[in-house]
Amino acid sequence: MRRLALALALVVLPAEADDRRSGFDVMGPDTQAMQQDDTANPGILWVRDGEALWTRADGGKSCAACHGAVESMRGAAARYPVFDGAPLSLEQRINRCRTTHQGATPLAYESQELLALTAVVAHQSRGLPITPDADPHLGAVRAEGERLFRQRQGQLDLACSQCHDDNAGKRLAGNLIPQGHPTGYPVYRLEWQGMGSLQRRLRNCQGAVRAEPYAYGSAELVALEAYLMARAGGMPLETPAVRP
């Protein structure tokens, strides 16, 4: 019960002084400038690719055939994950549309096409506040995500919260530990030299503590996403963000 109350409280935007910082706020000025200039932000290439895919008729129908212009997606990504029979991430929603409405095959996680479609949809919410969905089913999902966030794991036996709640702002070797807000996904990460989803980012952190990463699309990763998005509620979306 306390869990649920807590999870619900998270949905209400905090009224008190907000010391939450996006990864954007703590990265270097060069990387910030790169993100803000659409002609320099490499993530924009994925957005452009996504615009083309939006109108391509895969399996007979395009996304545009049902939804119209991609601008109709404004605000959608800011609410995800949602609940529709099961907790659903944005990637899972796109693949569900493909299989049930387009008669197409699902796209692989981290494939160019899925990243491009996710990027173009999330880009429509750039600048809008993250607005966690009010579906009551999501309370338990967020509570599970928070439990996983606080659970030690891997050979190094560290929890996400130990870095991102307790030690954010300090340096792990050369890397500044961010608060871990999923404000800009999918992001162009300089270290990856490419675009990656939030789930890729979370699996990277698991690898760093020598844990076996949760599978792409697993209930665990979607629960973590749901918790992190609620934790970042009210912060503006930046997609496509650039990160070091």
């Binding site: 659970q151 030690r152 794991q153 891997g154 050979q155 190094l156 036996d157 560290l158 130990q162 870095c163 307790d166 030690n167 698991q206 690898g207 020598r210 844990a211 076996e212 990463p213």
Partner: peptide, 15 residues
């Protein structure tokens, strides 16, 4: 946060 360098038990999801 300092890891226990000689511990092999009581760990979760070790790769």
């Amino acid at each position: 946060i300092m890891p226990s360098y000689f511990k092999v038990e009581g760990l979760t999801r070790v790769a």
